[in-house]
Structure formats: C-alpha cells, structure tokens
Design a protein around this nucleic acid. Structure first.
Lengths: 110, 110
DNA sequence: TTCTTATATATAAGAAAATTATGTATATAT
DNA sequence: ATATATACATAATTTTCTTATATATAAGAA
C-alpha cells in the first residue's frame, strides 16, 4: 500500500468512496484509479484489496456482478443501500480523524 | 483507542510528536495528554501504549529514565537524536497521508 | 474503615488488517 | 518468444491493536 503505516485501516474508506463516485467498479480498476488519483503515491495491493472486497460483500455493503470482457473475468462491485449509508459514516470518521490528529500535531492552532 | 479504525498505525506518530513538544513524559502522562488535547475523542489504552513505548525504546528512538514519585514508579521517556529525526519523518508522512486521502475523497479539489 | 477511583506499569491471548509470496489465466506489446 | 498488463484469488506471516488480567500505591467518598 505505502511505506507509511498510517494507511492501515483506510482501505475500506477508499473503496467505499470510489464506489460512491463511480457507481460500479471492478477490483483491478480500483487499483488503477487509486494510483491515478494519488499520482502513484498509493498502490493498493491485491492481497489487501480482494479480501477487503469480499468482506464488504459479506457484510452486505457491496453487491457483485460478474462479467466477461475480452474473454477475461471481471467482478463489478457496487454499493448497496447499506453501503451508501456506511460511506457517509466512513467519510465523517475520516474528517474526524484528520481533525483529531491535527489537534495533536498542531496544538497551537487548536 | 477509538471506534474508528483509521487510528491504526498512528500511535507511534502521536507518541513521537508529544515527546518532541514536551521533552520528557511518562506513559500515564501521555494517555492523559492525548485525552486532554483531543477533548476525550481519543483514548490511548495501556495495552497499546506500553508495548509501543518498549518497541520505540528497543529501536533506539527513545531513552528511558526511571523515577520514584510519591512512592510510585514512573518511567520517563525522551527522544534520542535518532528519535528526533524520525519524528520529522513521521510528521511528513502524516501530512502526506492527509493530502493523499483528500485527493481520493475530494478529487474535485485536486 | 472500607470501597472506589485515580495513578502507574506490564503482559498475554486474540482479532483485524495488512504484507509478502504464490498461483492461475488471458491479452498485448516488444 | 518473452515480458508486461490485465484480472482474480488465497495462504502464511507480520504488525498493530483490543480486551483481559495482574500488581501496587494514593486519595477521596461513604
């Protein structure tokens, strides 16, 4: 993912937000989109991504739809209603996280 | 620590930054300072804190000094030279993390 | 004076999330 | 022919944290 440990715990938020913006995406597409949006700063590895997608599906936050394109398998994921609600929560948590960390790291501005 | 998983991987950064500001601190003091600075938002548990302090000490980022105050044991930690350098890195990593996450979550502003 | 809360540190068992490595398979470019 | 890109998957291990437990002193409340 990155040499920085701070990204630990952020993957779910990233996946949900991307699916919130793009309606439906497949795993490999997510890795490429993240690389593009972060200008190479962040690379989602398969070992992290696929288990995360399966977990979100099992939790009912994502629906899957299998497709065959160019004779290759693709699994398109999209948010369920529950998944959309959870996306809002995750984005709030991210905003809170950033605020809290800035209070710790930049106490003068608090 | 918090119900939010985003804090995973942030503890080292928090410890180093506090020690960078306060010269020397003991474990319990760190938990109280974090609670105070974050207005109760973030609570560092002992199960996370003490192993983290021991690890930073083992890595040579912290020095320890044992003291007895009011007949109770205290272990004061302070940054080594290496620890001070690593603090700069960790703070840069935090700034980068925030920037990257904002690029993902708020692509319109990129 | 007994009980609770606060102060102070420590570790062990388990869970969660990632890394690293490996595996399969097709398509495209050199 | 070979390497790279596309596309998914999982298993072993590591890292980091949670939860629980343990010890001990001090202070305050009932």
């Amino acid at each position: 993912m990155s040499n920085s440990k701070l990204y630990k715990g952020s993957l779910t938020t990233i996946i949900l937000k991307l699916l919130n913006e793009h309606d439906k995406m497949y795993g490999y597409e997510i890795t490429q989109k993240v690389k593009e949006l972060t200008k190479g700063e962040l690379k989602i590895t398969e070992g992290a991504l696929y288990p995360a997608l399966h977990k979100l599906e099992a939790e009912g936050l994502l629906d899957v739809e299998v497709a065959k394109v160019d004779n290759r398998l693709r699994k398109y994921y999209k948010l369920t209603e529950t998944g959309t609600k959870e996306t809002v929560n995750k984005l709030e948590e991210l905003a809170d996280y950033i605020k809290t960390m800035q209070a710790l790291v930049n106490p003068k501005l608090a």
